[in-house]
Simulated assay, not measured.
Amino acid sequence: MSTTLNSQLIDAVEAGREADVKRLIEAGASPDARKRVTLRAKVKDGRGGFVWMEDSVDCESALALGILHGNVAIVKVLLEKGAAVDGEVRWKISNYYSDKNWKRDRWEERRWYSTFSFPSPLALAVGRGGKWTDRDGRVYDSPNSNKNLEICIRGGAVTITHPEKRPDVYVTHTVRPSMEIVRRLLAHGARITETELNAARKNPDQEFFTTLEAHHQRIQLELTTIALAAQLQELTMRIALVEREVRKKEDVNQEVTS
């Protein structure tokens, strides 16, 4: 049941249906649901024939899709329903070949064309700091200089059968960072590390960096204040303990002298 609901949730996020997103989560879908992509291909069996091979991976999360599509309302619902605001964001893109049948080594080593990853939803929202790892293990910055990256074709549960061309497996997506989404992530406790700050520095719109830097400094100040308050409380307790010991000794001395 939850698998079906999770798939429907991804569909609703991609379609921008805010009311359905809320309804599905309340019905049991996970706010951290991820797109499920299954690749099926005809692979040469070494005897002149072929066998069908299949592999499935979890791809974009509901929150990642909401961020990528710049849908503030859906991101708001997901966050309010408990979507995780920290942790790596990662998805894979299937490979494709125009050959009638795939060679065995292509299936074993290169069935997934590339992997896209961002250190956190916040970095994804800033639109910088991601990595694209190709099928040969080479790593590039993502998004590219044209602000583009690749995302899986639409659907909560996608089955790609013997793909032969690019549109069969992915869509080229232009990243458009949203300050409102960044603010909502911060309001729900998204952590800021040097990684996110470096990502924001790469965005030509410096409002992203100044916003993250100011929030980070405020959090650090609050943590410092809490730490100092705890130290003061501990010191006060120690002083009180010493004072009690001193009074005990004074009482003992008075008893002896009397």
Rank of each mutant, 00 (worst) to 15 (best):
K202C: 08
M237N: 06
R110V: 03
V89E: 08
L39T: 02
E234M: 01
R247G: 04
S145A: 14
E245L: 13
L186E: 02
R40A: 02
D11A: 09
V139P: 09
D86W: 09
R218D: 15
S56I: 03
A230T: 02
H215Q: 14
E180P: 13
T133R: 05
W102V: 00
K44V: 03
N144S: 08
K248G: 05
K103D: 01
K35M: 15
R23I: 03
S142H: 00
T3A: 04
V126R: 06
E109P: 05
I151V: 11
A200I: 11
T3K: 05
V252H: 03
D136C: 08
R106S: 00
K76C: 08
S120L: 14
G66Y: 06
L186A: 03
S142D: 00
C59P: 00
L149D: 00
G130W: 00
S120Y: 15
I67T: 09
S7P: 02
T195E: 12
K248I: 03
P177C: 12
K76H: 11
D55N: 11
R104M: 10
P121T: 04
I160A: 04
R135A: 15
T257M: 10
D134P: 14
S178D: 03
T133W: 04
S114Y: 08
T224W: 01
Y96F: 15
G49Q: 04
L186C: 01
A41S: 09
I219C: 01
E150P: 00
S30I: 07
V57H: 04
V242W: 14
R104T: 10
D136W: 07
A62C: 12
A41H: 01
S61I: 09
L185H: 07
G16A: 08
H173C: 05
V57E: 04
T115S: 07
